[in-house]
Design a protein around this nucleic acid. Sequence first.
DNA 1: GAGTCGTGGCA
DNA 2: TTGCCAAGACT
Length: 292
Amino acid sequence: MSEESIAAAAIRWFDANARDLPWRHPQAGAWAILVSEVMLQQTPVVRVLPAYEAWLARWPTPAALAADEPGEAIRMWGRLGYPRRALRLHECATAIAERHNGVVPDDLDALLALPGVGAYTARAVAAFAYRQRQPVVDTNVRRFVARAVAGAADGGHTTRPSDLTATAALLPDEPAVAARASAAFMELGAVVCVARTPRCTICPIVDRCAWRAAGRPALDGPSRRPQTYAGTDRQVRGLLLAVLREAVEPVPRIRLDVVWPEPTQRDRALRGLIDDGLVDPLPGDLFALPRG
DNA sequence: GAGTCGTGGCA
DNA sequence: TTGCCAAGACT
């Protein structure tokens, strides 16, 4: 017998060390997993946990969410960030209710066709909810595979086709085992093979890691863009939407004006929110979350 | 393909 | 203190 595969070692480690997260419980269905995956896009686990519980308690099925107003989805999103995800999740629920009889599809192409569901989320649902053999590649897996296999310092900004190929090559043949391996890779990337200070001493595949073998070379290319948050349109959009989330009634423009002193940027931000469908302009210079 | 899109915690 | 980072999608 040859030495244990990376996937086998990762799964063994995962069996003993996986965090107890609600979307990993056996009773978490495809809808719950889909909700968790969308919430987790660019958002830390600890911030998702309470929002996830509240969301599913209110909308336990896609049909339940689809029957409610999109503005309520935006309101429930709270401060998770990137509120367009809430709107897309509502559109997604509507599509599932109308096109899939209220059942989250298990077909990859059908998943990819859903609003807000991209290459990562579609494969995550296929693997974690339906136990399919799919390369589930997020930033954690990209980094883990880049280091372990290619010996690179990180996995790059975006997922390329080669990333899917490289990850798929690590997956065992049996679909359910492959799905388990995908979860294990993600967990390793999230808690062991982390970006800043990887914990190689507790890594189950350190003896096979190409990056470790190469002496953990530093990242050579240019770092990511600066893009500070303070003063950006994103901050202004966030301030504007926060007012509308807290308001029960439509809000007059004056209450939005006070959140940002510079009128040009403020108007641009508000127009952007309206264009995105996150805010409805109403007669009388009033504004509200969309009702339908 | 590069830009845009929130928010908060932490080294 | 502040830049970096966190289970991406879309244009």
